[in-house]
Design a protein around this nucleic acid. Structure first.
Length: 292
DNA sequence: CACTTGACCTGTCCGC
DNA sequence: TGCGGACAGGTCAAGT
């Protein structure tokens, strides 16, 4: 799945649903989904309780009473779904996702002593869960190099502009997607914020002036905050911690809207490839300042 | 060094 | 309907 808003939505759901629960068992399918040894799992997860759920970039961090942290990266198609012990009770249609778990994409199952369960599903198997001592979390290679959180107050327009300019020779879209520049932006919100700022994704960073980057900063924060409010974007796989879809996609202005009218000028939205990714643009609003 | 491309996987959709 | 190929929201290793 997901980008910052989706992971943040899952974090909030878990924070509400699993705090204080005690882990009864953990089972997993492959080393890849969960590389920790069975002995580490039984020693540092089983029997411990969930103290708090954090997020850094697109990584979820479940803080355990054992002083270990369970890191989770959902990559493209991962889901973390909590199911109470009342899954067949009122309020759940028979065909809802949670009634059918585990399914073919289930990689890890964590059960709690109260009868509830947490499923880690991942169709494409890119995602992972990793158990680390709390003090080693920030030593992880990804955690070491990942850039600042865009929604933290200290992430000002000045900081954004300076960090984007570290990638002056590449396209603005590649710079936004670079997790070492700033954390949490992926393909959806890169396209959406660039449309908002009327910048073509292929524009080379050094061709952009400060006022354009400041506009992009505002648009980026706007789309990230709106997306969190909408519970993220569900294109295909993404669901929140309760197995429910997000609705940002209904508000998207360009993402997955190729062939439809630009909401600003009614020109037909185009799809192309920038930074190796499917890219959605309005050819009129986002006139390229001097092609890539 | 800065930047780009392919690989990791499975599923789906599109054109022939 | 069947089949090959392209493509899908992320990140890393290898390539230019």
């Amino acid at each position: 799945m997901p980008e910052l808003p989706e992971v943040e939505t899952v974090r909030r759901g878990l924070q509400r649903l699993i705090i204080g629960k005690i882990v009864k068992s953990v089972s997993h399918d492959t080393e890849k989904s969960f590389p920790n040894s069975p002995s580490a799992v039984s020693e540092f997860i089983v029997g411990s309780s969930i103290l708090k759920v954090h997020r850094r970039a697109k990584v979820l961090l479940l803080e355990l009473s054992s002083n270990y942290v369970l890191m989770v990266h959902l990559k493209m198609t991962g889901q973390i779904v909590f199911v109470g012990d009342d899954r067949f009770g009122a309020g759940h249609p028979n065909d809802s996702l949670i009634n059918n778990l585990p399914d073919k994409s289930t990689r890890v199952v964590i059960t709690f002593t109260d009868g509830s369960t947490l499923y880690f599903n991942d169709q494409r198997k890119f995602g992972w869960m990793k158990l680390l001592p709390k003090e080693l979390v920030n030593e992880e290679p990804f955690m070491q190099k990942v850039g600042p959180e865009p929604l933290e107050p200290e992430f000002t327009a000045t900081v954004f502009v300076a960090r984007i300019r570290r990638r002056k020779g590449t396209s603005i879209k590649a710079a936004l997607l670079d997790q070492t520049v700033l954390a949490g932006v992926g393909n959806i919100y890169a396209d959406e914020s660039l449309w908002g700022a009327k910048i073509h994704p292929a524009t080379i960073v050094k061709k952009l002036d400060n006022s354009q980057l400041e506009e992009l900063y505002k648009e980026l924060k706007f789309v990230l905050e709106l997306a969190i409010e909408k519970g993220g974007s569900t294109d295909k796989n993404y669901v929140n911690a309760e197995g429910k879809k997000g609705s940002y996609i209904d508000f998207a202005r360009v993402f997955r809207r190729e062939g439809l009218a630009c909401p600003r000028c009614s020109t037909i939205i185009e799809k192309s490839r920038v930074a190796g990714r499917g890219t959605h643009t309005c050819p009129v609003c986002q006139m390229n300042n001097e092609e890539a």
